[in-house]
């Protein structure tokens, strides 16, 4: 068994695998992340049967928290398996903060949250803004602190899908990219290492100042959202709201009451950036 350790924001992981190549890929991409001695979660990428380590290698994702019936992946998609395994530990296990499926960036000590379905563009937008004067905080999970309502960074490797891959190659040609994984269950996937300062400042939270629900592929429009609609959407964007009970209720309630929220529709990154800057300046 080969293994590696890394820390993303407040959470630390041990990833083990019978395949050295998966661990090598992870070590290369997570090279600039802290290496914790103690870990919160273990994820293992095993062969589904002993002989399937060699014959049509097929990766089963296991860990402290598991979903039954998770489909195995071919070895060439092993890095995606690691990403899914790590996500699952956070989604099912993490309780220190409220977890929202949202990307986040920071400027002047205040954070911008973007939530939405997969395909809304929240992840791509955060990656782009991270190269346009904002500090990238996370592309997938925003951790909301129960005590002060701050957004805590979770700057894992950015997981780019389909057209976002080309978009980011133009935006950040010198960034470090992982291997291109074609035709995964989520489409084509390629990871990109976040900007260095995102990793360096990954323990530095920021008070949320603006929450957006982006909608990619529609004519430009900005619509203010009512707190009840925002609350409803965020309960479904949260992996642990129900499990956190009253603590989670209070944390989400304050976020919804305190942070102005808009839905923005846009056709491309430049259009979205202009809307975001406009809303940011109006704060």
């Amino acid at each position: 068994m080969h293994e590696t350790h890394f820390k993303v924001g407040p959470a630390s992981f041990r990833v083990g695998s019978v395949w050295k190549e998966i661990i090598d890929q992870i070590e290369m991409l997570y090279a600039s992340y802290p290496k914790p001695k103690l870990t919160d979660y273990t994820v293992t990428l095993d062969a589904i049967r002993p002989w399937r380590r060699f014959v049509r290698p097929s990766v089963a994702i296991n860990g402290d928290f598991m979903l039954p019936d998770a489909a195995p992946l071919p070895l060439s998609h092993g890095l995606l398996g690691a990403e899914m395994g790590v996500n699952l530990q956070m989604a099912l296990g993490w309780r220190r903060q409220l977890i929202l499926h949202a990307s986040s960036v920071e400027k002047d000590g205040k954070s911008l949250l973007m939530s939405g379905e997969s395909g809304s563009g929240k992840s791509t937008l955060s990656a782009i803004l991270g190269h346009r004067g904002w500090r990238f905080m996370g592309d997938e999970f925003a951790l909301i602190d129960h005590d002060n309502g701050f957004v805590m960074p979770y700057p894992r490797l950015i997981s780019l899908k389909n057209q976002a891959i080309e978009t980011l190659k133009k935006e950040a040609p010198h960034a470090q990219f992982g291997p291109l994984m074609k035709d995964t269950p989520k489409g084509d996937i390629q990871h990109i290492v976040p900007p260095a300062q995102a990793i360096r400042k990954m323990e530095q939270g920021a008070k949320p100042a603006l929450l957006l629900f982006p909608n990619y592929g529609y004519d430009a429009e900005i619509r203010e959202m009512l707190p009840s609609e925002v609350f409803m959407r965020l309960t479904q964007a949260s992996a642990n709201f129900v499990g956190l009970g009253e603590t989670g209720f209070n944390t989400l309630k304050h976020l919804v009451l305190d942070v102005p929220t808009f839905e923005i529709a846009y056709q491309n990154g430049d259009e979205a950036e202009a809307m975001i800057n406009q809303l940011w300046e109006q704060l």
Binding site: P227, S228, F241, V242, F249, L257
Partner: peptide, 15 residues
Amino acid sequence: LDYMSLLYDRQSGIT
């Protein structure tokens, strides 16, 4: 909140 309100039930943990 607005035209809707939140009701949290501590006993069931349901919102």
